[in-house]
């Protein structure tokens, strides 16, 4: 009889990597590493001007782009990814929403000529067209992620904390 392992066992020992993994994916070199700790905010407003004034920062215009650590994810949604220690003024009573989500996600970095191929194993977007300055929510297989194209051949990936070990190993698996 074929023995089916109980579901609870699957993934039991997956832990988030703490040191970079380097190698090649489909022959192209790539390094997967944990990103530096960041400060994260979910920022929402119908009127970008109100939000921009409240936080004292410029906001990117186009959905799917990032600028100065803030990405526009949707028509009324921005996401700030700022260096550790950064602060944002919090206002009350205005038609906007600021929610700090620093601990909600962790960041991974993929760099090298194989970075797009590594992500493309599970992300259905055409990553060759996700040029530096682009940022979007999407999926890696069944896991929701954000991809920020930081520079040529360099992507920052945001993933919710509990999915991060799986994602790390799913990415690392192909790096040989």
């Amino acid at each position: 009889m074929l023995e089916i392992a109980p579901l609870a066992v699957a993934g039991i020992d997956l832990t988030l990597g703490t040191t970079p993994v380097s190698g090649t994916v489909y022959g192209h070199s790539v390094t997967l590493s944990p990103a530096a700790p960041m400060v994260r905010w979910s920022l929402r407003a119908k009127d970008a001007g109100v939000l921009s004034a409240a936080i004292g920062r410029a906001l990117p215009d186009a959905i799917g782009t990032h600028h100065d650590g803030i990405a526009r994810l949707g028509p009324d949604e921005w996401y700030a990814l700022l260096p550790e220690g950064s602060t944002l003024p919090v206002v009350a009573g205005q038609p906007l929403s600021q929610v700090e989500v620093t601990a909600r996600a962790v960041g991974l970095t993929l760099t090298g000529p194989g970075a797009a191929a590594a992500l493309g194993r599970g992300c259905p977007l055409d990553l060759a067209r996700l040029t530096p300055g682009r940022a979007t929510r999407t999926v890696f297989e069944t896991v929701e992620i954000q991809i920020w194209a930081l520079a040529p051949e360099t992507f920052h990936v945001e993933v919710w904390r509990s999915f991060a070990p799986w994602l790390w190993h799913a990415l690392a698996e192909a790096i040989v």
Partner: peptide, 9 residues
């Protein structure tokens, strides 16, 4: 439809 894992709209 909802672009649930994109702009969420």
């Amino acid at each position: 439809w909802r672009h649930a894992h994109g702009c969420a709209r």
